[in-house]
Design a protein around this nucleic acid. Structure first.
Length: 431
DNA sequence: TCTGGGGTCCTAGGACCC
DNA sequence: TCTGGGGTCCTAGGACCC
């Protein structure tokens, strides 16, 4: 087994939405700026100056009113078309530094790079500065780069780069001596670790794990027992054992969500139906643009979760389509029928939406199931193939394995697995 | 009186991320 | 009065089957 030492980098645009706005409006430079969410409800991006004023992520605008007036903060509605375009350019610039296999588009403003192959020919810190320089000169976007042995470590390094201006945007934990890392980790709260959220922070604190250093020194076995396998992986990653690989992007979506909060409470069934109809159109157009089919549709309605004077009403319904479809009329009909079921009088609805579970259309052709299987040479590869098939079919499980290879060993000739061997509905455990 | 057990599938809910 | 939207993954528990 190869267990090569890897080196990952995380490139992250600083204050992404605000930085994008500043490219086209330089008068915003050095000013406190916030960008709002869809309905202008709350702050989803803040400039450094705004962060310095104590404005937190996700705070509703009405709570910021005084601060905005007091400090003359510029408040902008979001312009997602602009951010998407800048993101596209950002990814393009990075693609000139690594091969496509070495680049993972993680989010609108973040890319992971696998720099393993460059370590022998380059000083990676200098290489990272080169990347930052080009992003700034070509796009006008400021960014930071963290470098580590694993993706989680690269994330941590990125955080350190952002918080310590003397690093000039690059933190390379791979080349840093352990004492320096230790003293840095001692000052960072465990909540900053990628994968450690609010709830886990509380629990970790109760176990006397408060800093990143505390966490890195914890026993993986104890963490596995107290938390889930995800947290276990996070710890191993911070200890330098790479568990999360670069993923070839873009990956096919597993679900598509379309939902909005209403500006005011909605009491009418027809209004809900009208809204859900729009969301289905939106979801289906995204479904088609990715060349996917919907296997299952879920509709949900909610009252206002912030209103403590009323119980929170939160209901959903799902329907598995007998045949995967991207027919918007059909899906709209199903969704509005669901609204009829979910609707209740005298409830002030604040939000509704649909979730489509996606399938890849070509997987509905039985022969495609076997293209992977025919290449299988080891049990690991078999598991991968099963995963692939399972992914294509959503969460339905497929009983291959024993039933597929009764009383035979793994060395059997693969071409005996002809498509005729199985019946369609034996493969899918769907009614 | 003692009342199986292993497996699958589905759903709801929780936690995290940006 | 006003509180985002779009995602992924994991787990517990119930129904059901043989």
């Amino acid at each position: 087994m190869e267990s090569q030492n890897k080196i990952f980098a995380l490139v992250d645009i600083n204050n992404c939405y605000v930085s994008c706005e500043r490219v086209f409006n330089p008068s915003l430079n050095n000013q406190p700026v916030i960008v709002l969410s869809n309905n202008d409800g709350c702050a989803v991006a803040r400039s450094q100056e705004a962060k310095n004023l104590g404005i937190k992520m996700g705070v509703p605008l009405f709570q910021l009113k005084d601060l905005v007036e007091q400090h003359n903060i510029t408040v902008l509605s979001s312009n997602y078309a602009l951010y998407a375009e800048m993101s596209r350019r950002f990814i393009k610039v990075l693609s000139e530094f690594v091969t496509p296999q070495e680049q993972e588009i993680y989010s609108i403003d973040e890319c992971f790079l696998d720099l393993t192959a460059y370590a022998s020919n380059y000083d990676l810190t200098a290489y990272a500065h080169l990347i930052l320089d080009r992003l700034l000169r070509w796009l006008g976007l400021p960014a930071c780069i963290g470098i580590g042995r694993t993706k989680t470590e690269a994330k941590m390094a990125n955080h350190i780069a952002k918080k310590n201006s003397y690093l000039k945007g690059v933190c390379n934990l791979v080349s840093m001596d352990y004492c320096s890392i230790e003293s840095l980790y001692q000052t960072i709260e465990v909540s900053e670790v990628w994968g450690v959220g609010k709830k886990h922070t509380e629990k970790l604190n109760s176990l006397s794990i408060n800093t990143v250093l505390d966490f890195v020194c914890a026993s993986p076995l104890m963490i596995r027992n107290q938390f889930s396998i995800v947290m276990h992986r996070t710890l191993l990653e911070l200890q330098g054992i790479s568990c999360i690989e670069i993923e070839q992007s873009p990956k096919a979506k597993k679900q598509i969500i379309a939902s909005r909060s209403f500006g005011q409470k909605v009491y009418s069934r027809d209004d809900l139906k009208e809204a859900i109809t729009l969301y289905v159109q939106d979801a289906v157009s995204r479904l088609r643009s990715e060349n996917l089919l919907c296997g299952c549709i879920l509709g949900f309605v909610q009252s206002n979760p912030f209103d403590s004077s009323e119980p929170f009403y939160n209901k959903s319904m799902s329907y598995t389509l007998p045949d995967p479809s991207d027919n918007s009329l059909l899906l709209t009909k199903i969704a509005t029928t669901m609204i009829d079921q979910l609707y209740q009088q005298n409830i002030g609805f604040k939000k509704c939406g649909v979730i489509l579970t996606c399938l890849e259309p070509k997987a509905t052709h039985i022969y495609d199931l076997f293209t992977d299987m025919n290449k299988v040479k080891s049990s690991n590869q078999l598991m991968d193939s099963l995963d692939n098939i399972q992914n294509r079919f959503g969460k339905k499980k497929i009983g291959l394995g024993a039933s597929m290879l009764p009383n035979r060993n793994w060395n059997m000739s693969r071409n005996q697995l002809t498509p005729n061997y199985f019946k369609w509905d034996q493969l899918m455990s769907v009614k």
